[in-house]
Design a protein around this nucleic acid. Sequence first.
DNA 1: ATTTTATATAGATAACAATCTATGTAGGGT
DNA 2: ACCCTACATAGATTGTTATCTATATAAAAT
Lengths: 322, 322
Amino acid sequence: MNIRHFTFRLLQVYVAVVASGTVSEAARRLHLTQPTVSMQLKRLVEAVGEPLLESRQGRLFPTEAGSELYRASREVLGRFDDFDDYLSALRGGERGRFSIALVNTAQYVLPRLLGPHSQAFPEVEVTVHIGNRRQMLTRFERQEDDLYVFSHPPSLAHAKAGRFLRNPLVAVAPRGHPLAARERIDMSELLGERMLLREPGSATRMLFESWLQEQGLTLGRTLQMASNEAIRVGVASGLGLAVLSEHVLPPEHPDILILPVAGLPIESHWQFIVRSDRRLSHAALGFLRFAAGHLDACVEPRFLSNELEALLAGLERDESLH
Amino acid sequence: MNIRHFTFRLLQVYVAVVASGTVSEAARRLHLTQPTVSMQLKRLVEAVGEPLLESRQGRLFPTEAGSELYRASREVLGRFDDFDDYLSALRGGERGRFSIALVNTAQYVLPRLLGPHSQAFPEVEVTVHIGNRRQMLTRFERQEDDLYVFSHPPSLAHAKAGRFLRNPLVAVAPRGHPLAARERIDMSELLGERMLLREPGSATRMLFESWLQEQGLTLGRTLQMASNEAIRVGVASGLGLAVLSEHVLPPEHPDILILPVAGLPIESHWQFIVRSDRRLSHAALGFLRFAAGHLDACVEPRFLSNELEALLAGLERDESLH
DNA sequence: ATTTTATATAGATAACAATCTATGTAGGGT
DNA sequence: ACCCTACATAGATTGTTATCTATATAAAAT
């Protein structure tokens, strides 16, 4: 019984014959001619080496071996239908897995998207990596993830990007700070105080420093802390002032206030970045689709800046060129 | 995903690649060249429409879709291996089903073979039909069974036969019968008494009557009973005398004795009959093989007459001409 | 006995599977 | 920079599958 003489097609035909009980009827159902089905059957019998059907009362009934082959064929064909379903689910982004890498600051917002997405697609497994900008760039170079979230994309030579959220940087001070009462403050006035800064390699710090440079300002005393949370708590405790993403502040923040510094907030946007030299997993694509459609329901309207449709259009265009 | 582009061979190759983790190694294992395997893989990827493998650290790992295909392939190939095992069992006569039709008298002996056979081959289902010779002939004409047991075969045009057991017919009388003391009796002396006979259509009756005819004798008073048991009990109760198969008598039969009639026992043999125009089921063939080998262990030696090897040789010769 | 219906066989063909050899290319290791 | 190994592509060949039309045969129905 050489397995090479079996084809799925042959099994399909056989199943149709057993199910209908006649060769001609099976041929009709399969949109084949009767001799075609007869031949297939003959080949199958040869391949098995046993009679498979016997004719009684004008109908074909499977023999012992025939019944077992019928069972086997049904199972095998069924298994392939299942596989096909699995593929469809995979393609529809309903199942599968993807990984996403976030810059630290984005971790305050992304769960608002990831949570509902995983409710809607419970079969999709997501891995989230978090680190500062420099670490994310390394992951990006090494192609370790499906999606990346940056505020400023790396070279777009091998990547496509789509903005989805405003990320304003604001100056913050502890409640009761002397400058708090003022209506308008100049950044230069702040620089006399100690500034709490993120580590080098952080996107927030990079943005802040390049803004300062544009303004021709330089930092005075600083204190470096490698965490937005630590800085927020530090500011609240009077350790100094800071420039932070507004997303870092909790909805209610009675112990901290935002200073009305001229030129602030520093505007930036988070974007989803996709490597264009690497095929995007269906699950990741599914997440982007979900984000495009549900972003407005998941984040505060004032931060909205949804340019994901354009990204998706670009991706799907690529997809269609095989 | 057109199922026609999948072949079992393709799946075999794919499984080998996933299992070994490299194309070249799989090629070696399959005794193929590396490009052949590469090509197969390419075709499979096309057929599925998704990438199946990705290379990491110099080894190939299945993607999401690839893993599922691997699972499906293993199951499918496994199912076919099972089917192959099933076929082997069927061919070896270890499983399957057959039916056998016995003339009444043989029912006293055949269980001695059928019992041990079904111990040895518990997966084989046997159906036993019992009736008188005429009924068996009808079943034979209609090709209703795989095996038949007759003492005299029907026309051997469409059948092969093999003797396996002596079936001597003896004259019996109740214990204490006047003729019992005699050393030698003539059948003519018995015919004065009432003879208990089986129904017309019975093999025992047919044999007895044709023997009588040869001897130029005719029956006197008779009484007809359609069962060997009834006749045996009838004789024991003094209802008359009878000529019966010796097999009908229980091992101990204190109330009945065998008369030393000249010319008796009437010798006949039971035979297994197989239609030669109908393919014999493996299970039935298995039973014949079993009978050929174990007959001596299953029946009393004095009845042995095993010519089954010749029958089997004839059958297997046919088998080999397809 | 004749017609209808179901199945099998023959002969033909286009497409494809399965395989090879030869050659090109890319990723790791020294 | 170079080499080895693994993988991919190209081109060719052989055999098989899948399918058809036309026709013969067997079985059932009238």
